[in-house]
Design a protein around this nucleic acid. Structure first.
Lengths: 216, 216
DNA sequence: TTAAAATTTGACCATGCGGTCAGTAATTCA
DNA sequence: TGAATTACTGACCGCATGGTCAAATTTTAA
């Protein structure tokens, strides 16, 4: 199927059915991982939950590893798209930064399953045989870069003090991910609303110019 | 062995050999998980790396789940002990807070394997059959509580402004964990020293009283 | 020294896994 | 309409896993 090389070395345009099935399988797999854990998310279990035969998964995906990569891509792309849309509503960098942080949390709150599955998938190591891709690691670079650009324009416009771009971007993402992790590990251990408010304050406070008074 | 109930309902004091073997097995398992991933860390592989027979693990641990719990306990206890020792050197709460953050990162830097394994283990879900313990979630409560106490005394002494204790403790731990996570996922994507410095500044800045000038 | 207890071995087992495949059904399209 | 392509089924395979156990070995203690 997908692995067949076309004469013009172009990928065959996927059928309507194929796209729908792949979506269904990925979504079912995410739900399965979130509820039962990755170790219990066998192809048989995913197929059972989806109401299809196990062979269908093998038919549409070139092995379980390929399925997992598509799941991971989905888990990272969906929140990224949502956040980007929210950020694009804002004009000024500081407001964009706030929107970035808040949109992350908003998506988080409405898609807890996604993050439970993501935390589960973090533990994966690429197949030693497959030459060891670095999908996991590289997948986080775009959001760091996106954040750094927001910071950069903020600095240019004087809304943000002269922080180191990459490090600060990592730091902001780290705070978001850290709160997310605690919330995933124990939904009740954390007052999510309070944490969101505090982390947003902390971040905006950290990047605010020294001479600034009321910025938000 | 360990499951035998003693007449006086006290646990039998473990033999020297037993303690040593258990330590060895746990340490070898951590190394194996860190290097090959949990999915490849079979009892056979761990035994092979330790140079012992597979049955020894079954003899000393009541199933793989019990081994994993001991690994997890070890992964959480060791840094906690280290951090506590560093915090205890300091007298004033703000210095203790700095020590807490910095000691976390110091241990992190010298024990990357531990954290690689920990991230891998986060994805585990307790056995549905075993009544679903909440070890994972509860294991993080002590450090949050410990942090909250530091903050509390800092507020009392006026070194720290009146922040919400639990939420701020969660937030601080979240920032630490978030940086740790990025570093674990990709050692090279993050300038760890710069991140440590920034996150320490951000945290101390966040809790500093409004009227304070030079605090560190 | 020796009997009991603790420890280790390695072969063995049942189970569930990812993956394959011949055959069947559904869909597409000329 | 009918042949070709696409999609699906369910039985099957080889394999790695966690776990067991009788027998052998080492340690303990009387």
């Amino acid at each position: 199927m997908r692995s067949v090389i076309q004469p013009d070395s172009q990928k065959r345009r996927p059928t309507f059915i194929e796209e729908a099935r792949r979506r269904q399988i990925v979504q079912t797999a995410i739900r399965t991982i979130a509820t039962r854990g990755f170790s219990q998310a066998s192809l048989a279990e995913i197929a059972r939950k989806a109401g299809i035969s196990k062979g269908v998964i093998s038919y549409h995906f070139d092995g379980k590893e390929a399925l997992v990569e598509e799941i991971l891509a989905s888990l990272l792309r969906e929140p990224a798209d949502f956040v980007k849309a929210r950020v694009d509503r804002e004009n000024r960098p500081l407001a964009q930064l706030r929107a970035y942080v808040e949109a992350n949390f908003e998506f988080m709150r409405t898609h807890r399953d996604h993050y439970v599955a993501l935390v589960d998938l973090w533990g994966r190591r690429p197949d030693a045989a497959s030459g060891g891709n670095r999908f996991d690691a590289d997948a986080y670079e775009p959001s760091r870069h996106y954040l750094a650009r927001i910071l950069e324009s903020g600095i240019e416009q004087g809304e943000i003090r002269d922080v180191p771009l990459r490090t600060t971007a990592s730091l902001i993402q780290a705070a978001i991910d850290g709160v997310m992790l605690q919330w995933v590990l124990d939904e009740d251990a954390l007052d999510l609303d309070a944490a969101i408010s505090e982390v947003t304050d902390m971040i905006t406070g950290h990047v605010r110019p020294f001479n600034s008074e009321a910025a938000s």
